[in-house]
Design a binder for these strands. Structure first.
Lengths: 347, 347
DNA sequence: CTGAAAGCGCTTACAG
DNA sequence: CTGAAAGCGCTTACAG
């Protein structure tokens, strides 16, 4: 143990300290080192200690490629998110990655741009690396993607959403009830006395649509639903678009007294447009958003919105995935992290 | 070629189509398949064609782990950026990743939080995967990080910055002259007739400091430099902080007639604060920012700023790296992509 | 230009 | 509980 291991004589020696170096120095077989270091049960505790000591003395670090090749499982975790231009997903990504990295995993990120076939292609590329786990946004995927996920046998946790019906009860996910959040915000507005509550949305991804359904349900229950209150635009969400939509609504439906935007960037843009147009918020029209993004508390007036626990979702999903990768059974396969109305000045 | 390859009889067969399957079906040796598929010169064109055809017919896809283990080079490219909470770096990341992915590389992202030792640790983890290339933000790294990069022999391109002196002429980088951008914006303000131009900064990373030096130089040349015009805050940049700094300046230095914020989020926060405080921009005080981030064109008044080519930087750096990874010599190892003043209403 | 052989650095049945 | 051996799926000197 006091002698430095001789460098390998091979022509292709890489200079790296290998498992065999550790085995030689510890006086055991490579198999034992492998087992001891991975904490496999059925290894003599005394040996574990010796191997661990020698290993760290030599500065041994396992080669991920060799490990992946031999075990057919890499130390990568693949994550699929729709966009990087929405702070929501960036928060999700960062939280998941931080948790995963602390457990020794590298994150492989894929940006789908809300495109089902791009998602499929990205997943295909990621699966080539035999990831140890999968984190995917939402529950809606095309046939091929679902098949790939199932065939790969890779543990998978879905982000942001919770299944609606029980046919999906076998799916792992962490999120909150989008539909309910839409309904709760709408009821909040009705309770404040607003009577013509519009819903304005862009992008129209599945979660936005669920918020729409929640809004519809709440209005219908209050007997205040009217299809002309729906303003749906498939274009990508942005501040600028929020301003455009706001102007449209104000021009075409002056009787609207509150607007529920499906995302804070739209609502922030609307607030800026209101300032520009001299429309006073909330006295002429209330404006509320969704997600509580950066800047919403700095607007004039400050923006009422729904705070969504995206960092917590990223972290909890990563933890859930870590459990699955260890082969543990989960008590709660579907985690509802809730949401919260943040009342500010705009409503 | 018309018979499907027999599945391997091994207990650990993975079901994947392998190089040997292709070799058998094409009637050549595995070495030849390997060479043909990688486009190595010195392979009979006819064989290349045959191998390629068989390979795609069989749906062969090389195993990245096996390739990495054998060649000591993975298909990963590691990228180090300071933050994910600054849209600037997200744009950089997305552009680089898109370009890299199109060339068959997977991106390994590391977020340093402007912490030199976290950067070192991240790089260490990334190098374990034997990345084919490295993309790192800035030119400032600690001793250990520089040593790691040099010893690794991995081609590396630096982002955002250009070296100041010639001692760093051997470094590859894509960016623009931060100091000059600071000076140009300051001269623009002086030319517009502003006389007491403050510089307000947060985070104080190396690039912010360079902008500060540019501002100083421009003011000194105009005989208008005054140390009390410098407002430096090491806290992370944010809209809220911009508002706070703006209030401070207005209270303590009412004679200031223009404020140059080192980043648009600060400037946007200042604009909102001005609205709140009833301070009119630009008639009482001009406000300008840096980077032209989302929302700057939606503010009231719209924000004058410096547009920086971050997406182009990400893409150009990725392309440069691809060349280096191919072993090509570069005509331009240091690429200056410039910047542009965007004049809007706030100045 | 092509092939046989060794090797990359691990993991994992299989025996004991 | 431990070890010898085979194998994961490629690449790359080395010969020819």
């Amino acid at each position: 143990m006091s002698t430095t291991p001789l460098p390998s004589k091979s022509t292709r020696a890489t200079g790296r300290v290998t498992l065999s170096d550790v085995a030689r120095a510890a006086g055991v077989s490579p198999s034992t080192v492998s087992r001891a270091l991975r904490g496999e049960r059925a290894v003599d505790p005394a040996l574990i200690e010796r191997v661990t000591a020698v290993s760290s003395m030599l500065g041994y670090v396992p080669d991920p490629a060799a490990r992946a090749l031999a075990s057919q499982r890499s130390d990568h975790v693949a994550i699929l998110i729709p966009l990087l231009s929405n702070a929501l997903f960036v928060d999700l990504l960062e939280a998941a990655q931080t948790t995963l990295r602390a457990a020794g995993y590298q994150t492989l990120m894929g940006v789908t741009h809300y495109d089902a076939s791009e998602e499929e292609q990205l997943l295909r590329e990621q699966l080539l690396h035999r990831p140890a786990g999968l984190l995917v946004t939402g529950l809606d995927h095309n046939q091929a993607t679902r098949k790939l996920m199932a065939h790969s046998q890779v543990p998978c946790v879905h982000l942001m959403d919770l299944p609606i019906d029980e046919s999906e009860a076998d799916i792992y996910c962490v999120g909150f009830r989008q539909t309910e959040a839409g309904a709760v915000m709408t009821r909040y507005l009705l309770d404040k006395g607003y009577r013509r509550v519009a819903f304005a949305a862009a992008q129209l991804d599945p979660r936005v649509m669920q918020r729409l359904y929640g809004w519809r349900k709440a209005l219908q229950e209050a007997g205040r639903y009217d299809p002309t209150l729906e303003w749906l635009n498939p274009a990508p969400s942005s501040l600028a678009l929020g301003g455009v939509i706001f102007e449209q609504i104000m021009q075409q439906s002056p009787a609207v007294d509150a607007i529920f935007f499906c995302n804070d960037d739209l609502a922030q843009g609307a607030l800026m447009a209101a300032l520009r147009l001299g429309i006073s918020v909330p006295s002429q029209v209330a404006i509320v958003g969704f997600n509580d993004l950066t800047g919403s508390d700095q607007m004039l007036p400050t923006l009422t919105t729904v705070r969504t626990p995206r960092a917590q979702i990223g972290q909890a999903a990563a933890r859930m995935l870590l459990s699955l990768m260890r082969g543990e059974a989960l008590e709660t396969p579907q985690l509802d992290l809730g949401f919260e109305i943040v009342e500010r000045q705009s409503s």
